[in-house]
Simulated assay, not measured.
Amino acid sequence: MNHRQILDAALRSQPAPRSRYLNLVADRVERDGRFADRTHLLYPVLARAAGTVEPMLEPVEFVDLLAEFLAHHGAAIGAALYDRAYLKDPDRALAGPASLLSGWISARILDGLQSGRYRPPDDRTYRFHSDNGDMDGALRGFPFHEDDAAAD
């Protein structure tokens, strides 16, 4: 089976810049020996995470990040793919690994923004949130934490 078809199908519903970017990344993955026997693990997770990928990293850096991600989490991805739950609901079965991959990508981008290697596009606004909207502890009231404490 050509596992890239899984990613290609997911990219059809993505905005053109993101789709072009992820196709460049996939082309590099196809030529990279580190993925020779692991694309069956990578493409389903990357397809599930495609909607969260910001095309800011250089494709070479992105491929390196993917290789590192698979080195750390390949066994868990394999377990999710070969679990019976994947047959019933692939999106749900891969939600955890896809979320983890999105976190790795976001962390790398944030590091690059902080160090000045990347500049955010002028037409973008970024916001941060938790998955369930519950913000406890130091983040409660963010960005107005100091005002909330003073009012109490």
Rank of each mutant, 00 (worst) to 15 (best):
N2P: 14
H3I: 04
R4E: 08
I6D: 10
L7C: 03
D8N: 02
D8W: 02
D8H: 09
A9H: 03
A9W: 05
R12I: 11
S13I: 11
Q14F: 00
P15Y: 00
S19E: 05
R20W: 02
Y21T: 01
L22Q: 08
N23H: 05
V25F: 10
D27I: 02
D27K: 09
E30S: 08
D32Y: 03
G33C: 11
G33L: 12
R34P: 13
R34W: 05
F35M: 07
D37A: 14
D37T: 10
D37F: 12
R38N: 04
T39M: 06
L41Y: 12
L41R: 13
L41C: 12
L41F: 09
P44A: 01
P44V: 05
V45W: 14
L46D: 01
R48F: 03
A49D: 03
L57F: 07
E58G: 05
P59C: 02
V60N: 15
E61Y: 02
E61T: 10
F62G: 15
F62T: 06
V63W: 15
D64H: 08
D64M: 01
E68N: 12
F69M: 02
F69H: 15
A71W: 14
A71V: 10
A71R: 15
H72D: 07
A76R: 13
A76N: 02
A76P: 04
G78H: 03
A79I: 06
Y82P: 02
D83L: 01
R84Q: 08
L87E: 07
K88H: 06
D89V: 06
P90S: 00
P90T: 06
A93K: 01
A93N: 05
L94K: 04
L94P: 08
A95H: 09
G96E: 13
G96I: 14
G96R: 13
P97E: 03
S99D: 04
S102K: 04
G103P: 06
I105R: 11
S106L: 08
A107V: 07
G112R: 03
S115K: 05
Y118W: 11
R119V: 10
P121H: 09
D122C: 03
D123P: 11
R124A: 12
R124E: 15
R127D: 14
F128G: 09
F128K: 07
F128Y: 12
N132Q: 09
D136Y: 14
D136A: 15
G137K: 10
A138V: 04
A138M: 00
R140H: 11
F142V: 07
F144H: 07
H145W: 06
E146I: 07
D148L: 04
A149V: 07
A149Y: 12
A150G: 00
A151V: 11
